[in-house]
């Protein structure tokens, strides 16, 4: 009885008894969640447009951040370094299309997936050869002061990350639904043969999505890099994006956002209110457990595209 009380009643009593602390936990979760979403977005974009699960997305985040820091270390001003990094990511998209995708047209999905694993090693090695493998600090001048609103402690940096995440999602949503290119991207995701038949050139589309995914990676890289330093482990946050994708659905931009938020908030709450009961460190595995539950009951995710079957 006591154990049931401890698990199913006490945590909620705690939450209710200190609402200010609770809202701090939730807000903290939301902000971390947005950071997860940023990484997950890159996966969704490429998966949507080419059906390829891009294993190297995490390394793209690292590579973008490395390039940015590297340039800044050489005395390049922030704004110029940003522009140059964007250009590097676009060049990378061209290279990927030219060296990899073009040659693998019509191959099995697993072959493409394997090639992205290869790409992740190449990118990581290349990035560290050029820019060095020591831990770097990234400071692009995002304010990092804490302040209080109505008793709740907030951090400027987190808010900035949240705002840029929201902005990016809005821009992407508009792009996907109201532009010619966006429509073409969704068309390719649906039926690439038919897309080819109406004259949509797949190569352009691929370069396009890899560029966009690279830029999304750059934003994620800036946020995470500024938070925890630019180093190899940055590429591992991709692992945190997996449960986000399973939750939100591999093909849904809003799904990536909502999935990120659920995971961010969920793991924070679980850690703080249930963590002590099982000896802590729930934060590390909570996301994966949630993902497993989703795989059992709703494999296409919350917002994943339903497989349309007419009867």
């Amino acid at each position: 009885m006591e154990i049931l009380y401890a698990f199913f009643v006490a945590p909620f009593v705690d939450m209710a008894s200190d609402p200010i602390f609770f809202s701090e936990v939730v807000i903290g979760g939301v902000l971390t969640g947005i950071m997860y979403s940023l990484v997950a977005l890159g996966f969704v974009l490429i998966f949507k447009a080419s059906g390829v699960f891009n294993f190297s997305q995490g390394v793209m985040v690292l590579f973008a951040a490395l390039t940015l820091v590297g340039l800044m270390e050489h005395g390049v001003p922030v704004w110029l370094a940003l522009i140059l990094t964007v250009m590097v990511m676009i060049a990378l998209a061209f290279a990927v299309e030219w060296i990899m995708l073009r040659r693998l047209v019509n191959q099995e999905e697993i072959v493409l997936f394997m090639s992205t694993i290869g790409l992740s090693f190449v990118l990581q090695g290349f990035g560290e050869t050029v820019w060095g493998s020591n831990v770097k600090l990234l400071d692009v001048g995002i304010p990092n002061e804490s302040f209080e609103v109505g008793g709740i402690l907030l951090n400027e940096f987190d808010l900035f990350a949240a705002a840029s995440g929201a902005l990016m999602v809005t821009v992407l949503a508009v792009f996907f639904h109201y532009t010619r290119m966006g429509r073409a991207l969704r068309a390719v995701a649906d039926d690439h043969q038919a897309a080819l038949a109406v004259g949509i050139p797949l190569k352009t589309i691929w370069i396009m999505v890899w560029s966009v995914a690279g830029m999304v990676g750059l934003v994620a890289g800036i946020m995470w890099g500024a938070k925890s330093g630019v180093q190899f482990s940055l590429s591992l946050i991709a692992l945190k994006a997996l449960p986000v994708l399973i939750l939100g659905g591999f093909t849904s931009v809003p799904g990536a956002i909502v999935g990120g938020l659920i995971i961010g908030v969920g793991e924070k709450i679980a850690e703080i209110y249930w963590g002590p009961l099982v000896g802590g460190a729930i934060e590390n595995w909570f996301a994966y457990m949630l993902a497993l539950v989703f795989l059992l009951f709703r494999p296409q995710g919350l917002f994943g595209e339903k497989i349309i079957e007419r009867v």
């Binding site: 010619r180 429509r183 073409a184 969704r186 068309a187 995701a189 649906d190 039926d191 043969q193 038919a194 897309a195 038949a197 109406v198 004259g199 949509i200 595209e305 349309i308």
Partner: peptide, 26 residues
């Protein structure tokens, strides 16, 4: 020169109008 493929091959998740608009891509 454009082909209308066997088995229709419409873009299932796009609306009818969006489908038509993709035809104007070029």
């Amino acid at each position: 020169v454009i082909q209308v493929m066997e088995g229709r091959h419409i873009f299932e998740h796009l609306t009818v109008e969006e489908n038509l608009l993709t035809g104007a891509y070029t």
